[in-house]
Design a protein around this nucleic acid. Structure first.
Lengths: 336, 336
DNA sequence: TCGAAGTGCTGAATCGAGTCAGCAATGAGA
DNA sequence: TCTCATTGCTGACTCGATTCAGCACTTCGA
């Protein structure tokens, strides 16, 4: 590319030392004895020439490229999950490391090619992320390599993983409603399929918090994780004789549908019905009234994942990050 | 990393040829004469051993790493722009190339470090993207390297660039309203600062299309590109004696604010007022009625940018991609 | 005065490929 | 029989770093 790259040899020449000495100085090794004067000369030469070591050459020798791979199923479809990538790149950069990004779209064959391509480039490790917190089967190509799972967990005691504390999140959501005085007319809206951990754990957290307070979940109604499904489901709920006093929606898009259904029914949030939700996406802040939502800490998930991966000794840990509550005006005391 | 990597030497040994011959066969060079039989033996050996060339070593020699760098100001804040990254990685992968991703957050110093780090890793070129279509000053470190600007343009005849056809997009938006019968009570909502090309060109396209049809833009009112600003602005608009018959919002979030203001005023979209917008984000599909929106082709921008970059001969071209119209139910004939 | 220990540095090998110049065998033509 | 291409292949160097073993020189104690 740039033919006139400054090499270590150039620095050595200018400093009047051997390449060996120059190498020891630039890499900051102290186990070899170098006079302070010589070290100084090398440093000056490097600065004057604008020397930057070729990480290709260095990586070839040291088997360390200071580059990691980020492999996920889908990034773009989950609009706000870009924050996960962002957190990871930022934390990686902090550790002088860059990130190769790839998306499989859920296709195992694409995933295999992707991982192989990254290995060909000598990556130091992998972040393996999924967009919904779920249990995954680590692909065979990744076995034997440094991997940190982000937003997903392996089957057995596999590699390290970082996930949101969904149970705690569920508790927080329930607590918001309990604090406002809701007791037994609370409905959870959203499906909880077996492989998606998030839903089941949130449900568990909600139930636990309600039980502990002597309250109870009136019902769980299924809904796909999209606005129109939330709309249809909540509209049906509101037509019943006994209207819920509060809804816990499994994500902000369902909550958007719920808002629309509530408005259609001539009711108002939170006066007639309170709503809390999960995601903590921008959308929550755009709705009127602002939606109270238990946030998925995307940025922190990515950042912590990268930190764990770059950590010298990678003990197999399963970390849970807190889900902060995004406060909103969508909760008030139950009416009627 | 994995100590037991299969090297070219292993393949050569197994095939009973020299490393040179093995190299010529695996890289598919034909200018050196190799018997079909020997080539066959090398291919078999490579397949049997599962040989994958080290792109580190190859890159060191050939100055080609099949890796590109993606540098942008902000990715995560623009939720749907992740599609841009996705399009770019997909197109790059198509060309056997992976992408290093970095975000400067708008800080020139971070940007410089980022670019340098990528250069240290021997990237073959750069995609330099911004999240709003604007004019940028190419950072000094990038000068002299292969660069394609994505969603932004340089000052003079600089490197190649790919941007949406914002003028055409403006035309499309206006045409939607013209077709529905709107003439002279159309208001454009959103600010058009000098450095953001998108806004100014959309305005130009809208005006051109209206003029051509003998219609005219009643007014342009400033609003920040967020829902609450849109809400406040549109609410003020609706209180006037002469209500607009249609709004052209500069993005979907402003349109969301507009929807809220319309509902608050006891009016309905599109019966009392039509709305078209720009972005074509998921949000447009979530609103009721669905929002007609002129889409930013994020996926195509990224993909085309990567294609241009990987193209052997990189002539300096300025490409404009069409902005497809996302149809919706937010437009109807003017009432009153 | 001599050897041992310590100091400061360097030559040459290595990582895993690509690449150039040239060598040995074969066959064709004079 | 003696060139002279042509065919098929290989040895040795290179990319730009890291790293090990060891060399020359001083200093110090006996």
């Amino acid at each position: 590319m740039c033919a006139d790259r400054v090499r270590l040899a150039d620095v050595a020449d200018r400093a009047g030392v051997s390449r060996t000495t120059a190498s020891y100085v630039t890499t900051g090794r102290t186990d070899m004895r170098i006079s302070a004067e010589a070290a100084q000369r090398v440093h000056s030469a490097a600065r004057e020439l604008g020397y930057r070591p070729s990480l290709l050459a260095r990586g070839l020798r040291t088997q360390l490229t200071h580059t990691i791979g980020f492999v996920s199923d889908v990034i773009a479809t989950e609009p706000y999950a870009g924050a996960l990538v962002r957190g990871a790149t930022a934390a990686a950069l902090e550790g002088q490391t860059l990130m190769l990004v790839g998306e499989s779209g859920g296709d195992p064959e694409v995933e295999r090619r992707l991982v192989q391509s990254m290995l060909d480039r000598g990556v130091d490790g992998f972040l393996y992320a999924s967009m919904y917190t779920k249990q995954v089967q680590l692909p065979a190509v990744l076995r034997g390599h440094r991997v940190v799972l982000v937003n997903c967990v392996g089957r057995r005691r596999g590699p390290s993983s970082v996930v949101p504390d969904e149970i705690g999140g569920g508790r927080s959501a329930a607590q918001l409603l309990l604090d406002a005085g809701h007791r037994d007319r609370i409905v959870l809206v959203g499906e909880t399929p077996p492989d998606v951990i998030a839903g089941r754990q949130r449900l568990a957290g909600v139930t636990a918090a309600l039980d502990a307070a002597g309250a109870r979940l009136a019902e769980q109604v299924d809904a796909l994780l999209w606005p129109d499904s939330g709309y249809v489901t909540v509209r049906r709920l509101l037509r019943r004789r006994a209207r819920p006093s509060a809804l816990i929606c499994l994500n902000d898009r369902i909550a958007l549908g719920a808002y629309q259904a509530v408005a259609d029914a001539g009711l108002a949030v939170p006066h007639d019905i309170s709503v809390v939700s999960f995601d903590g996406s921008d959308l929550a802040g755009w709705l009127r009234p602002e939606l109270a939502s238990v946030a998925i800490p995307h940025l922190q998930l990515g950042a912590r994942g990268a930190e764990l991966l770059l950590d010298r000794e990678l003990a197999a840990t399963q970390e849970q990050l807190p889900m902060p509550v995004r406060i909103g005006a969508s909760v008030s005391a139950p009416s009627a």
